[in-house]
Nucleic acid binder design. Sequence first.
DNA 1: TGCCAGGCGAAAG
DNA 2: CTTTCGCATGGC
Length: 279
Amino acid sequence: MYTIKTEDFNLEYTLDCGQVFRWDRDGDWWTGVVNGAVARISQNPETGDLRVDSSLDEAFFHRYFRLDDDLPAIFRQINKDEHMDIAINKYRGLRLIRQDPRECLISYMLATASNIPRIKKNISMLSALFGEEIENGHYSFPKVEALASATCDDLCECKMGFRTARIIKAANAVANGDIVLDELFSLDYGEAKNELMKLEGIGEKVADCILLFAFEKMEGFPVDTHVEKIVKAYYGNDPYFEGNATKSKIGNWGRHYFGEYCGYAQQYLFYQKRLEGLI
DNA sequence: TGCCAGGCGAAAG
DNA sequence: CTTTCGCATGGC
């Protein structure tokens, strides 16, 4: 057990906002499986200090929770209007998380046309069946090799529906080197997005999630059904849309309007919509 | 019960 | 180019 000092970090918002699917809260403590290890974390609401019980060290969580991001500087860039001002003040401390690329890829392919409780259940089942048991009842996220050698029948217990075949194909593409994920880090946003979208089951939205959450592409602006509704409600009259705010236009608008850190803006809007609906 | 879900891709207009 | 549908299943 050890302590991590933090500033401008809110554990609850960061783990609850819907970007990660393997953390659960029990009272003051969050328990999750990350990087093949179990971790338990709580936050002192007065000081912001984290208490951490895990074999993973402080450096790992510093990187995982993006404590290197200068949040006030990011806020100054994305705080373009009263909507964002309200969201970032209310949910201040929500940080993006640096996810494992392979886990993020599979998780967001699985998230298409689903909902967060169901996604969490699917991933939990997938890990129990194809991951490794770390502690009693806690399983690591499956390696792509384990998913690549599975069949649709093997995966039927996970109830992933039409997503099952796509995930097996993508796992094969990663496992046999048809796509080399680590190379995406050195590509720019547009190039990396094109590479991801070559995989069946990855369109603009899923690609943006993966790029934002796992590949350091902060200009990812995922436009799902919630963000589409928010932007139409708050910003639909912006002349940029010429009266027709399609999903693809909304993504480009978000990058243009919020700038370099639009991915942070998207996540604050998304979380606010989930908790409060349209205001 | 029926609608919709952190969508995508093929088909049709 | 834009719009419409089917997909497989469960949460609400």
